[in-house]
Every structure is written in structure tokens, then in C-alpha cells.
């Protein structure tokens, strides 16, 4: 067997990836102000709408799921 890789555990790699993410996010956010939009509704044509939507949508998704958990979660042997 090959020796195992620890590529993603290296702090340097992690930092670089994070930096790449942040920089490209900023570039995207800025360019969103300049691109010509084909919007269908007044709200989806707003600049950075999708970024905010993705952020808020995902936050609410996880938080709702989290509060749903006590309601639907059972131990693994529930049906046995």
C-alpha cells in the first residue's frame, strides 16, 4: 500500500485554500455589480442577491433541521 497522504492536514494547504476561497468570493461579489442580469423578478436581479440567499437559506436550513431533530430522531434500534 502507498504511504498515506496528509495533504489537507497541512496548515499551509488549509490556509491557501481558505485564501483562495475568500479571494474568489470577493471577486465574484464585485463582478456581480457589473454583469448584465436577466432577472425574472425585481428581487433576483439585485446585486449579490444569490450570495445572500445561499447564505441565509443554508443557515435557516440547518437551524430548522436542528430544531426538527428532537422531533424525528430515534435510536438506531427503533424499528428492531
Amino acid at each position: 500500500m502507498k504511504k498515506e497522504s496528509d495533504f489537507f492536514d497541512r496548515p499551509k494547504v488549509r490556509k491557501t485554500l481558505l485564501a483562495m476561497f475568500v479571494v474568489s468570493f470577493i471577486v465574484l461579489l464585485v463582478s456581480d455589480f457589473f454583469v448584465h442580469k436577466h432577472s425574472y423578478f425585481y428581487w433576483d436581479g439585485l446585486p449579490v442577491f444569490n450570495a445572500v440567499f445561499g447564505l441565509v437559506g443554508s443557515l435557516s436550513l440547518v437551524l430548522i433541521a436542528k430544531y426538527l431533530r428532537p422531533l424525528i430522531m430515534r435510536e438506531e434500534e427503533y424499528y428492531d
Binding site: 476561497f21 465574484l28 454583469v35 436577466h38 444569490n50 450570495a51 445561499g54 437559506g57
Partner: peptide
Amino acid sequence: YTADHVISQLLLLFGAFSAFAFL
């Protein structure tokens, strides 16, 4: 592949990823 579509979709995904990273 229009600039609008590519950027909007990337923003949506970046936004969602930021939420995940934050959480």
C-alpha cells in the same frame, strides 16, 4: 453559460458554503 448565470450560481454556492463553514 452566460456571465450572469455563472456568477449567480457561483455566488449561491459560495454563500451556502460560507454558511456551512460558519456553522
